[in-house]
Simulated scan of single mutants.
Amino acid sequence: MSKQLPVVVHVESIGEVLFRSDQRCKRLSIRLKPLEGVQVLFPPGYSIQSAIEFVHQKKEWVIQTRRKMEERESGFTIFDEHTPFRSRSFCLKIEKSERSDVRLFLYNGVLKVLYPAHLPVTNGPIQEAIRYGIEEALRREAKRFLPFRLQVLARQFQFCYRAVFIKNLKSRWGSCSNVNNINLNLHLMRLPDHLIDYVLIHELCHTIEKNHGAAFWKLVDRCTSGKARELDGEMKQYRTRIY
């Protein structure tokens, strides 16, 4: 049996849809991912015409789901050669290259991304590779810096905690468990130093005060020279995810 090549078909009210066979597929499925559009996957040997009819049957669902996806896409940063990005220890540099894949290098304070010259940098998989590279570089940086800085602040303000974990948290900069394990978001490395310290102090205060009551904010105020609310307001300028 000859291999089925991907086919792009214009579907009314939806636009271009990519149809492709995948040996891992057990059944027909529709996939929508940010920056990649609408794709239909089906087992080898499946009729493309039947796949197109399936999309027509699911048209309303596709339109609604794509609308939600487009709302997410509107908040995405599209990284290119001119996008400024810097953490505490590295900056981002994106370059075209005569190659067939995306390569990432982190050396001497630069995260270099080389992508195929025959593809636009806005290509979905290229953007995903850039984000992956940034997050892995941030993870390394966070593991080197955050546990040590947390220890310094804990000693300075006389807090005790059990363990610290670096994670890629979706909606929080940090958290403190009931047994005083502290989780810190690797994206903290994108913040100014004084805000990194604020988040660490915030979580250290939770080792004593488990909620956000008056006693908690009084404690945070004592550790931040009365700037707790000011720093908390400043944090709202930043997001926990790279979009």
Rank of each mutant, 00 (worst) to 15 (best):
P6T: 09
R139I: 10
L114C: 04
R72H: 14
V17P: 05
L191I: 14
A129S: 14
D221E: 09
L104K: 12
C205D: 00
Q151Y: 13
E81D: 07
R140N: 04
L114K: 06
R149Y: 00
C223P: 08
F54W: 05
L119M: 10
K58C: 11
V55Q: 07
E230P: 04
P116C: 13
R24E: 03
T240P: 01
L138M: 13
M1A: 01
F76D: 09
S29Q: 01
F216V: 01
C91A: 09
S175W: 05
M69D: 03
N168T: 15
I52E: 13
C25S: 03
Q127K: 02
Y238T: 14
R222V: 15
E141D: 14
Q156G: 07
F148T: 14
Q158Y: 04
V110D: 05
E135G: 03
L204N: 01
S47K: 03
V40H: 02
R72S: 07
R144T: 14
L184S: 08
H56R: 01
Q127I: 14
F157D: 00
R190S: 10
H194R: 01
H82Q: 12
Y198P: 06
Q49A: 07
G213L: 02
R172F: 09
V152D: 11
L41F: 14
F148D: 13
R229C: 12
E73Q: 07
R140P: 01
F79N: 08
D232T: 08
V8C: 03
Q23E: 08
S2R: 07
W217D: 00
I14V: 00
L195G: 06
L28D: 05
H10N: 15
K58E: 08
K68E: 11
D193H: 15
E70V: 11
V62A: 12
I182H: 00
K236M: 11
V199E: 08
G213H: 01
M69L: 11
I182Q: 05
E16I: 00
D193Y: 14
R24A: 09
V9L: 01
R144I: 15
A214T: 06
R72V: 14
G109W: 07
W217V: 00
F165H: 09
K59M: 15
G226T: 10
L150K: 12
L219W: 00
M1G: 04
F76L: 10
R190F: 10
P125I: 11
C176R: 00
M235F: 12
A214H: 02
R190N: 13
L35S: 02
E53P: 02
N123C: 04
F54E: 01
E230Q: 12
G174D: 09
E12A: 14
